[in-house]
């Protein structure tokens, strides 16, 4: 198993009802797995736990053979090498498209960094607007840039949290195809959250259904 989630439990603050209770599953390397479930069932919460923004109450998360979260173990998000695309994209508003993409590449040397950034820009079909700011982009363009920004540092695992929810139906279909192509080309292991069964069917090879 590449990603292994064991008996994971979590609740926000001192809430009586935990958001996740004893969740277990595994993902093989290179798989693209969809997670569907009703609103409030804890899909986003699961991704936040895997990314390292929250610490589980119980259970553990093992990534590529390394325990990243368990009792007394906590690897902070920046050391997990997990990429994430947010529902609201989270593109840095004060940085250009290129700077956004280069943000995760600071370990590379100047030339390598520029090359990787160019590659990503091309895949996002944004090679003509590297110096635009996020607010100058359409929803679909922002979407692609944020996906490419997450992929640029070659994460071990990519988390997508409802990446298409702000797009209209036509664009969604196109984006689903694009994303699938890119993910397969880059051989990325991916966890894809959506409450839209069609999106998940279009992108994923396997589906986990989450309930309350």
């Amino acid at each position: 198993m590449f990603l292994e989630v064991r008996e994971l439990s979590f609740g926000y603050g001192n809430m009586l009802i935990p958001s996740l209770r004893g969740l277990s599953f595994g993902i093989e390397k290179g798989e693209i797995v969809g997670i569907v479930g009703p609103s409030g069932s804890g899909k986003s919460t699961l991704l936040r736990l895997i990314a390292g923004f929250e610490r589980p109450l119980e259970g553990s998360i093992v990534l590529d053979g390394i325990t990243v979260a368990a009792k007394d173990v906590y690897v902070p998000p920046e050391s997990r090498n997990v990429g994430m695309v947010f529902q609201d994209y989270g593109l840095f508003p004060h940085m250009t498209v290129r700077k956004n993409i280069e943000f995760g590449l600071r370990r590379l040397k100047g030339e390598e960094r520029a090359m990787r950034a160019n590659e990503m820009l091309a895949m996002a079909q944004m090679e003509n607007f590297p110096s635009r700011y996020p607010y100058e982009l359409s929803g679909g363009q922002q979407q692609r840039v944020s996906l490419m920004r997450a992929l640029a540092p070659r994460p071990r695992l990519l988390l997508l949290d409802e990446p298409f929810s702000n797009l209209d139906a036509d664009l969604r279909e196109i984006m689903c195809k694009d994303v699938k192509t890119i993910l397969e080309k880059e051989k990325i292991t991916c966890l894809f959250v959506s409450h839209d069964q069609r999106d998940v069917n279009a992108v994923c090879s396997r589906i986990i259904t989450q309930t309350y």
Partner: peptide
Amino acid sequence: EAARTLGA
């Protein structure tokens, strides 16, 4: 959070 997932 985005910055943290990008390794900062």
